[in-house]
Design a protein around this nucleic acid. Structure first.
Length: 165
DNA sequence: GCCAACGTTGGC
DNA sequence: GCCAACGTTGGC
């Protein structure tokens, strides 16, 4: 069966000054560990919900024109975030241990850059994309679920074929 | 267990 | 730079 009925889709936020889509593309094999998430709600998604092959909309936040800028996919499911156990890391958490890691991360891989960023204005004016969590005021989750329809709407707007199929 | 204070996120 | 929204901390 080659139907993708179980595939799910996510939006991941990053400040491009910290880690951009370009940085992802320049990573070895285009793969990076999505470390440093220190929110329990996002942790639960990373640990329990993201699966290999899931699609990721890569979003640049905290800039003049925040936007979806690219596509990625999950290549490794949730595993302990070792930066939490590294005293030299910015994301060190003294409560984390090998027995109780507390924090988890996934690996994601670069797939494509959108021909043009999909800004909040464009998302807000779209019948399907206007419902995205990322547009909701006060939403701070760095990993958010996206529907199949929203994923497809992004591809349609960009006139791209689905890189996961 | 309450809740005020505080820090962070992130659009604008 | 401002500030609303939200999560966390810590005194009681």
């Amino acid at each position: 069966m080659n139907h993708n009925s179980n595939r799910r889709y996510w939006l991941m936020k990053s400040e491009p000054g910290t880690f951009s889509l370009e940085d992802l593309g320049n990573s070895e094999n285009g793969v990076t560990a999505w470390d440093g998430v220190r929110s329990y709600q996002a942790r639960n998604l990373l640990r329990d919900e993201l699966k290999v092959g899931d699609g990721v909309l890569f979003y640049h936040s905290n800039i003049v024109h925040p936007a979806i800028v690219g596509l990625a996919r999950v290549t490794r499911e949730g595993y302990p975030d070792e930066t939490a156990m590294d005293p030299d890391s910015d994301h060190y958490d003294p409560r984390a241990s090998r027995e109780k890691p507390i924090w988890y991360m996934v690996d994601i891989q670069y797939l494509a850059k959108l021909p043009a960023p999909l800004t909040r204005d464009r998302l807000s004016s779209h019948p399907v994309l206007s419902a995205m969590d990322v547009l909701k005021k006060g939403n701070r989750l760095s990993v958010q679920p996206v529907t199949r329809e929203q994923w497809q709407a992004v591809l349609d707007l960009c006139r791209m074929t689905d890189p996961l199929v």
